[in-house]
């Protein structure tokens, strides 16, 4: 499906990359096969500037107010938030499990750091996800090359800085090939 290219409007602040917001929600009781995952994931929209981002984000429900098994995904335009996408297939993600009550603030800090190019890892960042679950929430940031240790270390250190997490927070790196197994 061809969509109109998004460009920054007059007087707006362009971003380094265009991004697309996605939303997914698991139907209770169904197995999470690849097909049902792709069917359950919906595009919210794409943006090219800071102001366009806020126009989407300000109207979106905050992750901490979501119920059930839901996810927001924010990926560079053209990258699907799936392991199978060419940009993700050799990649991995940093995962941070959050106790209830922290997701909204952490998600906002994470995506602002991504949009503002705070990670300083060239083209490596693919996108970010917040996953709302029953007992805890999970935020993750995906990069292209799981084997690039300098990059994954830099992403981890930037996450620590921008998320301002409690000192005992555990961060875990998972390659997407591990996740498939």
């Amino acid at each position: 499906t061809k969509r109109k290219a998004v460009v920054p409007g007059a007087g707006e602040h362009p971003l380094q990359y265009n991004y697309t917001f996605w939303y997914s929600r698991r139907t209770p009781g169904r197995p999470a096969s690849t097909q049902s995952y792709e069917q359950n994931i919906k595009q919210i929209g794409s943006f090219a500037s800071v102001e366009q981002f806020w126009r989407f984000y300000s109207h979106m429900i905050r992750p901490g107010d979501l119920t059930g098994h839901s996810d927001f995904h924010l990926f560079k335009e053209g990258i699907k938030p799936m392991w199978e996408d060419d940009a993700n297939k050799s990649g991995g993600k940093w995962i941070i499990r959050l106790r209830k009550g922290l997701a909204s603030r952490c998600w906002e800090n994470l995506i602002l750091a991504m949009l503002g190019e705070q990670f300083m890892v060239g083209e490596e960042i693919c996108g970010a996800v917040v996953s709302v679950r029953f007992q805890e929430d999970i935020i993750s940031i995906w990069n292209k090359t799981a084997s690039d240790q300098a990059t994954t270390a830099r992403i981890r250190d930037t996450l620590r800085r921008v998320l301002n997490l409690p000192p005992n927070t555990i961060m875990e790196y998972k390659t997407h090939t591990d996740s498939i197994k």
Binding site: Q16, V50, E51, W54, S58, A113, L115, G116, E117
Partner: peptide, 21 residues
């Protein structure tokens, strides 16, 4: 080429701009 870098404070300020609403 140059990268377009914004810090959190600047991005939050843009939220209040009339064209962001």
């Amino acid at each position: 080429g140059t990268r377009i870098i914004y810090d959190r404070k600047f991005l939050l300020e843009c939220r209040n701009s009339p064209i962001a609403r």
